[in-house]
Amino acid sequence: MKKVLISGNEAIAEGAIQAGCTFYAGYPITPQNELIAYMSSHLQDKGGVFIQAESEIAAINMVYGASAAGVRAMTSSSSPGISLKQEGISYIAGAELPAVIVNIMRAGPGLGNIWPAQSDYFQATRGGGNGDYHCIVLAPASVQESFDFMRVAFDLADKYRNPAMILGDGMLGQMMEPVKISNTRNKISKIKKSWALTGCKGRKPNIIKSFYMREGDLERFNLTLQKKYNQIQEKEQRFEGLFLDDAEVILVAYGSMARIAKSAVKFLRSKGKKSGLIRPITLWPFPKDIFKRLAISHKPLAFLVIEMSYGQMVEDVRLVLEGKARVEFLGRSGGGIPTEDEIIKKVMRL
C-alpha cells in the first residue's frame, strides 16, 4: 500500500471520508483549519455534504440533524470552539445519536493561544455539557492513527448510538507523517438505523428527542444510558503497553505526549532503568483494567503521569489505583510541552 505524507488534520478528514462520513459541518479555528479545508473540497467531490456553519453551535446542531436523518456525520474544532459545542453534544448523547466530534486541542483557558495542549481532558471524558452522559474518547498519537481511528470512532458511535470524540492536539493536527491510506469505502459496516428520520412510509413515525417530562420516564431513560455506559466500559478499553512486565516506573501519557514519553522510556531502558509506558487510547472508557492488574501482580515503584496540562488524566490514574501505588505527575501547558530531558530527570529522581 502506498504511503502519503499528510498532516494529522488531513488524515482525520480523509479517514472520516473513508469511514463513510457523508456530512460535515464546521467553523474555522486554528489549529484545525486544514481539516475543514480538506472536507470542503474532498467530501463534496465524493457526493457528501459540507457546510461552513455560522457558528460552532450551529455546526454541532447540524451534525445532530444529519445524524438524526441516518447518515454518518461529524464536526471538528479546537478547544474554545468545542466549549461552544457542548450544548449540542449533550443533546446528541440525550437523543442517543451517533456522531463524531474532533477536538484538536489548543491551550486555554479562554482564548488562550494556538499552541498544542491537553487541557480539555476533563471536558472530554466527563461529558462536558449538562446531564449524566459520556462521549467515547479516542486519543491518536500519530498521523496514521489519526486516519485509522476515524473508522473506529464512527463504528463505535453507530454501535452504541453515542457521540464519539477524537481528542488530538495542535502538534498532532499540524505535523505531517507518512500514512498508509487504505481505500475502504466499500467495506463500511452497514448498521441498520431503523430509528432514523426518513419519513414514516410503511412504518410508525420516528421521534428523535431527549425530553422526558412524565414522572419516572427520565430516570428510566438515564438508567438505560448508564447500562450502555457500563457495557462500553467493560468492552471498549484500549491502550498500548510497553515494557510493562518488569517495569519499576510506569509512565502514563496519551496522544502527542505519549510519543515523547515513549522516547524517554527507550532512553531510560538503554541506561538500565526499568521503565515502561501505558498509553491510554480510549480516555473514556479509561483503560482501568491494566492499571488494576499491574497494581496487584507486581508492585511497580511508581506511576508517572505526564500531560500537556496541569493534571487532569492523573486524577483517573489515582482513582483507579485507589492508593495502591505511588502516583507522580509532570505537566506543562499554555504552549509548553514536557521534554524528553525533563521526563528522564523526573524519573531518575523518583
Partner: peptide, 30 residues
C-alpha cells in the same frame, strides 16, 4: 411530536433551523 403523526425531531432551543438545514441537505426528497 406527540400530536403530529409523522417523523419529528426535537432541537435545542433556537437550533431548529440548523437541524433542519442538515436533514434537508442529506434527505432532499423529504
Amino acid at each position: 411530536y406527540d400530536y403530529w403523526d409523522f417523523d419529528c425531531s426535537e432541537a435545542a432551543h433556537g437550533r431548529a433551523l440548523a437541524v433542519a438545514t442538515a436533514i434537508k441537505r442529506v434527505r432532499q426528497d423529504n
